[in-house]
């Protein structure tokens, strides 16, 4: 019996094998990619984002990955967004709008219908990413259904929940608390299947202009206005 012969036995474990088979789509934030086991948003799993205060940059966080998907002709869906998803801003972020499906749900059955729609979309196998906004609630059973639907449809599912949800157990593969921080978006990873828990801060994306107020006045589209036929 030689060592070589022994090592051919499939029962013998070799270093890297454990990490294989975990698929992810890069977040395009280097620090965040480094913190996630597949170096990106997990595919075939639910990601939960708990937001302390609306407006901290919680949706901006997803845009680089969403933009990359739509530019590769992959469908994404926004389910029950809290307000009008503003097409010019999405376009600025590089998102190919023709691959973004928006699903609104009315107020009286909002929660139930949002879950149902998100589950259908995740499960369909057509949508690569589905983002769901939950203003309240979302119990463990419903989250499990979403997680299973994401597994079944091999999709990246993301669900926004209030920060209070962080205390409850959840079957989601990845859970983060998002908070405002003076230097950017603070991310506290409280569940990271196959990876480690940690905290990090992503810097603010736009550089704030430092010009004095008066000199910074711009006349939007002035040149384009001039091109319009007079008297239109």
């Amino acid at each position: 019996m030689t060592l070589e012969a022994i090592l051919k036995n499939p029962a013998i474990w070799k270093g890297r094998q454990q990490h294989e088979g975990r698929e992810a789509f890069p977040t395009r934030h280097a620090a965040l990619d480094a913190a996630l086991p597949g170096r990106g948003w997990p595919i075939g799993a639910l990601t939960e984002l708990m937001v302390a205060n609306e407006g901290v940059g919680e949706f901006t966080l997803l845009l680089p990955a969403l933009a990359a998907l739509t530019r590769q002709q992959q469908w994404i869906a926004l389910v029950a967004p809290p307000r009008i998803p503003y097409a010019p801003a999405l376009s600025n972020a590089g998102i190919a709008l023709e691959h973004v499906l928006v699903v609104e749900t009315d107020s009286d059955k909002r929660r139930k219908n949002s879950f149902w729609a998100a589950e259908q979309l995740l499960r369909s196998g057509i949508f690569s990413a589905v983002v769901l906004w939950l203003d309240a609630g979302g119990d463990e059973r419903q989250q499990r259904r979403l997680q299973l639907a994401a597994e079944h449809g091999k999709a990246w599912g993301t669900c926004y929940r209030p920060q209070s949800a962080a205390q409850n157990a959840s079957p989601a593969g990845l859970r983060m608390i998002l908070q405002h921080h003076s230097s950017g978006l603070h991310i506290d990873i409280i569940k990271n299947r196959g990876g480690r828990l940690r905290e990090l801060t992503l810097p603010h994306h736009p550089a704030v202009t430092t010009e004095p107020l008066d000199s910074a006045i711009t006349y939007l589209h002035a040149h384009r206005t001039a091109e319009r036929p007079a008297g239109l």
Binding site: A87, V102, V103, E104, T105, A117, Q120, G125, I126, K154
Partner: peptide, 29 residues
Amino acid sequence: KSRGQQKTLGEITDKLCSRLGADAVYTLD
């Protein structure tokens, strides 16, 4: 995607519209 389980876009949007209303499902421009 495995081909067997895959629906078409039309199938899924029809299903969503039938429950949520035709105005509730749209793309942006």
